[in-house]
Design a protein around this nucleic acid. Sequence first.
RNA 1: CGGGGCGUAGCGCAGUCUGGUAGCGCAUCUGGUUUGGGACCAGAGGGUCGCAAGUUCGAAUCUUGCCGCCCCGACCA
Length: 446
Amino acid sequence: MRLSNFFLPVLKETPSEAEIISHQLMMRSGMISQSSSGIYSWLPLGLKVLKKIENIVRDEQNKAGVNEILMPTIQPADLWKESGRYDDYGKEMLRIQDRQEREMLYGPTNEEQVTDIFRRSIKSYKDLPTLLYHIQWKFRDELRPRFGVMRGREFLMKDAYSFDLDHDECKKSYYKFFISYLKTFRRMGLKAIPMAAETGPIGGDLSHEFVIISETGESDIYFDKRILSEDSKIEDVAYDNDLEQVVQQYNNYYTASDEKFDQTEFDNNVAKDQQTKSKGIEVGHIFSFGTKYSEAMKANVLTSEGKQAYVHMGSYGIGISRLVGAIIESSHDTKGIIWPNVVSPFDIGLINLKSSDEKINNICNDIYSNLLNENVDVLYDDKKDNPGVKFSKMDLIGLPLQMIIGNKTIETNEVEIKYRKSGEVKYIKVENLPNFVQEIKKSSAI
RNA sequence: CGGGGCGUAGCGCAGUCUGGUAGCGCAUCUGGUUUGGGACCAGAGGGUCGCAAGUUCGAAUCUUGCCGCCCCGACCA
């Protein structure tokens, strides 16, 4: 993409309504545009990142054997009356009426909807487990939206639902998602800590929040430092292994959020030098809730003994739009965003420092089309701005690697390579560039 | 929902106390000179001062009502 064709409304100054760094940087880099409180439009740069994150989440769900579906944003109130949540949910739920004055709602979550889908077609234990997920926009009319996309009212979420014959089977599904979440966040370059969470009426150990450590996180978290090195091999864990064992390795470490924290418990379970306190952002939440919805909504199957049994369910969320903000919170510097390679909106930023110079233009055009031929997603700054403008803009939007061509480099027939994260600079002869591109593609450096 | 703050040009702000017909920086447009870290010179465009009613000869400024946005708190992926 040529920058001259790219809709990228960057701001030199920080809009006054943006308080936290990710919100500021998303506004300044032209990723989003606020529509109303907690509701945003996604502009090209932001949308590219959102899609990349979405696709990683999707890929990992598929690999875990979960089926993608797509449920509606607008749901009938009747389903929610069946589960009893129509009255329980409160003002967070946006209630609307259609032209026939039927009561509808903009879905804040999808347990009812998915349970309805399940009960219509699954009647036998032989069809279990059933694992479904979708990636859809949700709306929760928060009392106070804030932090940009980190706590918006409208947000994109992956939510998955499991249906199993009994509690033991349900646990297996739960573990599957547990592992898939570790893999998912790992792939995005994030260190996510699974923290035991409130389990509600079911009890047991079947609820975890996945929290990213971030200086600017919302809540205080306490944990055993050793859990950070636990997921070093998580990519290699196959789903047909005994997952309980793997999950148990994580559960062995003490973790607690602010509300649950207890200093005595901390001291008893964790050696002083391993005790860590940090700030965290919740990016995922998994829990199982037994037969709560299946009983209310009559979702049952026949067992091998020919008896009716209510299915045991679990639900598993990942905040996709929130992750965009969360990643920026954990990866930026004073100049702007530093995207992890896998979610970066472009692989490479190509900077033409003097677009009034025909010779430099020709070199840049060649490099640009060669990169495109190699399937490298490149943003080519072909505009007539001053060098300073180009440098700061490219630093702001945070592409992992910059290729810079100007008078200085063509004298020696070189291209300047600059890594956004480390600031490391090196020079490559123009004729060696194809080799260099092959190398970085192979090494996943972009 | 309780407490606080703010709405003046695309963005950041001054002007409001003390009423007299709107200004600064950046951005934008035109011409020219520039081109390795947010350039320079000359010129130009852009605002019913959030909306409505009221007070007044006269309202961005005073009064009342409404709307929107942000921050702190309680609550959530």
